[in-house]
């Protein structure tokens, strides 16, 4: 399916712009919205490119830079912070040899920080794509990452 077919059904739907962006990002192997994607949406919805760009950069689930196949989101809000989220982030960065916001050289993992994931019952928690992993320790991270090999 081409990109323009993908967003066809959202055109004319009230508030369909966000859904179109979701659909385009999900279909992109690099998990991001390319400049071409944004121009496509702008033309199809008949709204200025600046507006589409504004929406795409407003929400944290969208990215305008290419990302890895697996996006690791580390919660660094207070409930995770008090039970050691900082150690998790440090250990992940060391393990993957990247800083926050970067992607591993093989294009596999992108490391991001996020606000509360609403899963504080199992803090400290991270999300890898749609899957949440909780009650983490720096030691248990290796086995979590191994699930994605």
């Amino acid at each position: 399916m081409t990109q323009s077919m993908l967003i066809q059904r959202f055109i004319g739907e009230p508030g369909g712009l966000l859904k179109a962006l979701h659909a385009l990002q999900n279909s992109n192997t690099n998990n991001f919205l390319s400049p071409q994607d944004l121009e496509l949406v702008s033309g199809a919805f008949g709204v200025p490119l600046a507006k589409v760009w504004g929406v795409a950069t407003f929400y944290s689930l969208y990215s305008t830079i290419p990302r890895g196949r697996y996006i690791i989101r580390v919660c660094e809000s207070a409930p995770c912070h008090v039970v050691g989220a900082h150690n998790i982030l440090t250990a992940l960065a060391k393990n993957l040899n990247i800083c926050t916001g970067e992607t591993t050289a093989d294009g596999k993992f992108t490391l991001e920080v996020t606000s509360c994931l609403g899963i504080c019952g199992v803090a400290p928690a991270i999300m890898i794509n749609d899957t949440v992993h909780g009650n983490l320790t720096p030691e248990s991270l290796a086995s979590v990452l191994a699930l994605y090999n």
């Binding site: 809000s77 207070a78 409930p79 606000s115 509360c116 609403g118 899963i119 504080c120 019952g121």
Partner: peptide
């Protein structure tokens, strides 16, 4: 749209 850190009741 529950986003307040430490809240997961609505979920």
């Amino acid at each position: 749209d529950e986003g307040e850190p430490g809240t997961f009741k609505d979920r």
